[in-house]
């Protein structure tokens, strides 16, 4: 029994490689990693990080109390509530409607489909001020739609509803363009399989189509939301800008800037930044969770 005394050779199962020091960067077969990372870092720092960090430093001129005072000012608080509330509402409204538009554009063949497809991008391409003027012209009490709404007792322009309309307008392409390619690539097989298994049209949509496009839809919603929060041009025309009622936070920032209250403006900016960032993080996490299901 000699082998009782000899050291057993270290045998490792094939799927268990030698432990190695965990590396920060996994080796990639693609060349130019250092160069591309370097450029990416510098670029992001210059374009995104630097301006934002200056924004974060500026308000401290007011001191902590000053910042709190600025942000708890009823006019500011109401503007922030209005901006984020209506932005979220507009993005959520665009979710089903944008999905429907994308669905129509991908699933059916009809004359004018390409034209309609191009039309979707218009809110992207239009200078926002132009969009604002156009929307105001239509929805003002003297405009065709505004007059109609007036008759049923609805005030469209110069009310939160007007802001909502403008934000829906500029948010639509984000949802449509996020969802459309995924919808296009969806396997027809799977839907047909669901059909043969007895699923109704509604069940097919709910159990097969929506889960497949969920991540894309969510990303479209967050893009539309982010855009709506920062929207200025189209909103200020239609909003009427009544303090405490229809004044949005970006406008308030401009007003503060015009009064040379740079620190105050930065304080509101920072607050918007923090809220937006939080919202995007939440949506991203949800998106990752959705995307990971079934693809692990």
């Amino acid at each position: 029994m000699t082998d009782r005394f000899t050291a057993a050779p270290v045998v490792r199962p094939l799927n268990d490689p030698w432990p190695r020091r965990p590396r920060l960067v996994e080796h990639s077969v693609l060349p130019g990693f250092k160069l591309s990372l370097g450029i990416t870092l510098v670029y992001l720092a210059l374009i995104v990080l630097l301006p934002l960090s200056l924004l974060a430093i500026r308000p401290w001129e007011l001191g902590f109390d000053g910042i709190v005072k600025t942000l708890t000012d009823p006019r500011v608080a109401s503007a922030l509530r209005l901006t984020f509330g209506i932005s979220l509402l507009a993005a959520l409204t665009n979710a089903p409607l944008g999905l429907l538009v994308a669905w129509t554009l991908t699933r059916y063949q009809f004359p004018g489909r390409r034209l309609m497809d191009a039309l979707v991008d218009l809110p992207f391409a239009l200078p926002t001020a132009v969009a604002g003027i156009a929307l105001t012209a239509i929805y003002a009490p003297t405009g065709p739609l505004g007059a109609l709404a007036e008759k049923v007792g609805l005030k469209t322009a110069y009310s939160p509803l007007g802001i909502f309309i403008a934000l829906v307008f500029i948010g639509l392409p984000f949802v449509v363009r996020s969802v459309q390619p995924v919808l296009q690539d969806l396997d027809k097989d799977v839907e047909e399989a669901a059909q043969t298994l007895g699923a109704s049209d509604l069940q097919r949509a709910a159990y097969v189509v929506i889960p497949a496009i969920g991540p894309a839809l969510l990303s479209g919603i967050s893009l539309a939301f982010a855009r709506a929060v920062g929207e200025y041009g189209s909103v200020i025309f239609i909003a009427g800008n009544l303090p405490m009622k229809t004044e949005i936070a970006p406008l308030l920032i401009v007003i503060k800037l015009e009064q040379y209250d740079y620190a105050g403006a930065s304080a509101i900016g920072c607050a918007m930044l923090a809220i937006s960032f939080g919202a995007l993080v939440v949506m991203n996490i949800a998106q990752i969770y959705l995307a990971r299901r079934g693809r692990a």
Binding site: D187, D189, E192, A193, Q195, A199, V208, G294
Partner: peptide
């Protein structure tokens, strides 16, 4: 209609629901 025929169909590329 398709859903009332009660036929089981197996497709070449499986056609499974990948999120399930």
């Amino acid at each position: 209609p398709v859903r009332e025929r009660k036929v089981g169909m197996v497709f070449q590329h499986y056609a499974l629901f990948r999120h399930m």
